[in-house]
Amino acid sequence: MACPWEAPLLLAERKTRKSLAGCDYGGSETYYHEFLSRLSLATRKPEPFLRSWYFDSFMPRMCKVLKKHYQHRPGLPELFKTLARKGLKFAVYSDYPMVAERLHSLGLNPESCGLIFGPENFGAQKPAARPFLSIAEAMNVPPKETLVVGDREDSDGAGAAAAGMSFFKIETGGDWEEFLKSLNLAS
């Protein structure tokens, strides 16, 4: 649980992250420098303190919250197994770091989740197009043949559009069930 003195940090983190939407700094150190610099201005706390707080406290705590209160969507591990068995390439991309750790917290084996990407891979935040294009390139799939599945039109959808990719928005459990049916991946 967050300490009372952390409440302003948590709010500032969220606002700072939103202020970087779509920004592409070309590398993780440049990105994190900008993120921590803006967070420092908002909180009046030094960047080294904020780096330690973010990576050593905030993100590990996020993993604990995920493990305790959340779970992956029904059928997701089976979907990943089917995609892998059929030789279809897929990836998980998040704006938050520690993607493998967060997947594990949701009860998923990160090794079964395809390629895994976060801001440390690109130094950019959705909906910047370069990460989407880089992921398609890593999978050796042309952007026009890439389907992005996400829950946010303003980040996942906009990034897909900027990269010339298709997008499927999942907002509800019904959307997820519709998506699984639409794949028609039966053995």
Rank of each mutant, 00 (worst) to 15 (best):
D151Y: 09
F58V: 05
R51E: 11
A162L: 12
E13I: 13
E145T: 05
L115T: 08
K144F: 15
P119R: 12
K18A: 15
G159V: 09
Y54M: 11
L36H: 14
R14F: 12
A163G: 12
A21H: 15
H69S: 01
M165C: 05
D151A: 04
G114A: 11
F80E: 08
N140R: 10
L103M: 07
N109D: 13
F132I: 10
L10D: 00
G157S: 02
K86C: 00
P142E: 14
P110S: 02
K68V: 02
F90Y: 02
I170N: 04
L10R: 03
P60I: 02
A100E: 12
H72F: 05
S134Q: 15
A129P: 07
A162W: 00
M1D: 14
E6C: 01
S28R: 14
L50E: 11
G118P: 11
P8N: 04
E13W: 12
P74F: 10
R38P: 02
G27Y: 07
P8Y: 07
E34H: 08
L88T: 07
S40C: 10
L185K: 03
G26M: 09
A136T: 00
F80K: 04
L66P: 04
A128D: 06
S105V: 02
L185D: 04
Q71P: 05
L115C: 14
A162Q: 09
L66K: 04
S166A: 15
F58Q: 06
K64N: 15
P8R: 04
P74E: 14
R130E: 10
L103F: 07
G26C: 11
K64M: 15
Y70V: 04
S182A: 09
E171A: 15
A7P: 02
I170Y: 00
G173T: 14
S94Y: 06
E47M: 12
D56L: 10
